[in-house]
């Protein structure tokens, strides 16, 4: 029973973290019809920025104030820095690697995304000298709490609520603001929206900014739960988040969130299945699910019915 509860809680929390990445995928796919393979790596880089900015800020601030106060002040400042730098990274990637290929075939843009992913991973390997690095423990979120006889980090409990709050804000943004309306229009019809006077470049940049910001928040939560970061840390959560986006119906934000929660929970239950070597299949399960969905309901749970999609 305790095992089941803790598994469920972990599943919900991991699902929430996938959801934050999946929104970035689903929004970009909705507008550009591009699987942004670099998104998972942006998430990993956000983790690395967190590590380096915390240690740098702690060192800087301890010159000004006491060591303890510096450590206290460094963490919130560095989280802010993570947010800003990750958004800047996402924006730059779009401008440098995707914008020049706007009129190119879709395959070229996807290859460019794979190239960016390769570049980010290799740069991360170079900077970390291929050594695994540890995410700094965040105050409060990293502390443990006793629930139903198991000790659990606060982050596990906070994640679902934070995710829900962010998703509500995001849906409000998309449904009730001018830029949100522009996004919906561009997602519906790329060319006509251009004729209607929508500046698609700024809309696309905005999409990447939102996606990267959510990935940055996701990285803070995810790496507090699993603190070790290697250059390939982003690849698997990225792919799973993409599967979640497909599961929920690509282009639909509530779909991506529900899909991510379901995948997170299922994945954690696969881990505790009572047969030998069940943990080997955690990743395989997600992809098996993907193939099944694509074959039987390619539009996903909430996807629009469109014949040209699959």
């Amino acid at each position: 029973m305790e095992l089941l509860i803790s598994t469920l809680l972990f599943g919900i929390s991991v699902g929430g973290q996938y959801a934050l990445i999946a929104i970035g995928y689903t929004m970009v796919y909705g507008i550009l019809r591009l699987i942004n393979f670099a998104h998972g790596d942006v998430f990993m880089v956000a983790g690395l920025i967190g590590i380096y900015s915390t240690s740098l800020l702690t060192a800087l601030l301890s010159n000004i104030m006491g060591a303890e106060a510096a450590a206290m002040a460094a963490v919130p400042l560095s989280l802010l820095l993570v947010l800003v730098l990750t958004v800047a990274l996402g924006f730059c990637i779009e401008r440098v690697a995707y914008k020049p290929l706007r009129s190119a075939p879709r395959m070229s843009v996807m290859i460019s995304a794979i190239g960016v992913s390769y570049l980010l991973q290799n740069t991360a390997t170079y900077i970390t000298a291929a050594q695994p690095t540890n995410y700094p423990p965040l105050p409060f979120l990293g502390d443990t709490v006793e629930i139903a006889g198991t000790s659990i980090k606060w982050v596990v409990l906070v994640t679902p609520f934070l995710v829900l709050a962010l998703v509500i804000v995001l849906t409000q943004l998309i449904n009730h603001t001018k830029i949100g309306m522009a996004m919906r229009a561009v997602a519906k019809d790329f060319e006509t929206s251009q004729l209607m006077g929508i500046k698609i470049n700024s809309v696309i940049s905005m999409t990447f900014v939102i996606g990267s910001a959510l990935a940055a928040v996701g990285s803070m939560l995810y790496f507090t739960t699993y603190p070790t970061i290697v250059p390939t840390s982003g690849a698997m959560p990225g792919l799973k988040a993409f599967v979640a986006a497909v599961f929920g119906g690509i282009g639909s934000i509530p779909g991506a969130v529900i899909g991510a929660f379901l995948i997170g929970i299922c994945e954690n239950f696969v881990k505790i299945l009572p047969f030998e070597g069940a943990t080997t299949f955690v990743d395989a399960f997600t992809f098996a699910l993907l193939i099944i969905i694509l074959v039987f309901k390619p539009t996903g749970l909430f996807g629009e019915k469109a014949t040209d999609k699959v």
Partner: peptide, 21 residues
């Protein structure tokens, strides 16, 4: 039966499944 990027991601997933098996 899938097209373009869906085929890509499905075959990528298949490779991962094989590796796990």
């Amino acid at each position: 039966r899938l097209k373009s990027d869906y085929l890509a991601i499905a075959t990528l997933g298949f490779a991962e499944i094989i590796r796990a098996v």
